[in-house]
């Protein structure tokens, strides 16, 4: 009876003390070091169970990235070693290439800002999984991000030759070669992401990027009409009603979330509510500074 009470009290106390210790030493459990950094040594130490170890390291990489991202970014110095170990332990772990390269290539604070490492990771993945067209697609995507359009076109082209590759890779290769960097290309890339992923979060992310691209395209088009109006009438349009009056517009144009586009006195076109249209680059209200971590709205 006494032993039971002592056991219970001490067990509860140890948990409480540990919680206090965690408060005193905040971040101690997320310290940035690897006990063993050599993938070869780890492979040997795994006694043949390297598949499970790779899963553990991949989960650790995801948690590390998520933790750093949640904390507002950082230098992500362990991300590349973790991904390198993961993929060397299991070269067929496709999600580690696909998501890992995204984590690596995204610019700080959203990612590590290491596109060259992302490309290295992807090339390693392609070397070990040459028949997976997704990897060529992701590689092309990274090259597109760093504005290396010839290499992006080459990656899409290589992917298009893989058996069972999605037909849009050929289109992407051609489009990239001709119109690299244009909004139409971005629209095509995000459409392909939207159509091919099974992950609901990625699908939602792609949808909001597509909306942002749509804003860019709309704003470009409307600004052209505003310029035409000025050329035709000799003075600046005060509202969209002016453009509608001479038949350039049917009415007030709406953005992808249903708000009316805005027109200022200088002829700039912009959206009304940038908080509900993340990722928009062209068409932001004058003076508005977008967040480094755009949040996807869930009320639309």
């Amino acid at each position: 009876m006494v032993a039971g009470a002592v056991f219970l009290c001490c067990a509860i106390s140890s948990v409480l003390f540990l919680r206090e210790l965690d408060q005193v030493r905040k971040g101690a459990t997320l310290q940035e070091f690897l006990y063993i950094s050599s993938p070869k040594l780890l492979k040997h130490l795994s006694l043949g169970y390297e598949g499970l170890l790779a899963d553990v390291y991949w989960t650790r990489a995801v948690q590390y990235y998520g933790g750093m991202h949640h904390a507002g970014g950082g230098n992500y110095q362990l991300l590349w070693p973790l991904l390198n170990i993961t993929t060397q332990l299991d070269p067929h772990l496709i999600p580690a290439y696909q998501y890992g390269a995204t984590f690596l290539s995204a610019q700080p604070p959203a990612g590590a800002g290491l596109p060259e490492k992302a490309i290295q990771l992807m090339e390693y993945g392609i070397k070990h999984n040459p028949d997976d067209w997704h990897l060529y697609y992701d590689l092309g995507y990274i090259y597109n991000d760093v504005k290396d359009y010839p290499r992006a076109a080459d990656a899409f082209e290589r992917g298009s030759h893989v058996p069972n590759a999605h037909p849009f890779l050929k289109l992407l290769a051609a489009n990239m070669a001709q119109h690299g960097g244009e909004l139409q290309t971005a629209q095509m890339l995000w459409t392909s992401v939207y159509e091919t992923t099974n992950d609901k979060y990625i699908r939602e992310n792609a949808l909001w990027h597509l909306r942002a691209v749509k804003v860019g395209l709309d704003v470009t088009e409307i600004e052209k009409l505003v310029a035409i109006y000025r050329k035709q009438t000799g003075h600046r349009a005060q509202s969209f009603a002016d453009l509608a009056r001479i038949g350039l517009l049917q009415g007030v144009p709406l953005d992808p979330v249903g708000n009316e586009y805005q027109l200022d006195a200088d002829g700039n076109v912009f959206i009304l509510d940038p908080e509900h249209l993340p990722f928009v680059e062209k068409g932001l209200p004058p003076g508005y500074v977008p967040s480094s971590f755009p949040k996807i709205p869930h009320d639309r």
């Binding site: 899963d55 991949w58 989960t59 948690q63 772990l93 999600p95």
Partner: peptide, 15 residues
């Protein structure tokens, strides 16, 4: 695993 990692649920169960 589905909550703490990405796309390896099946792989982890087998491994």
């Amino acid at each position: 695993v589905g909550q703490i990692s990405i796309e390896i649920e099946r792989l982890v169960v087998i491994n």
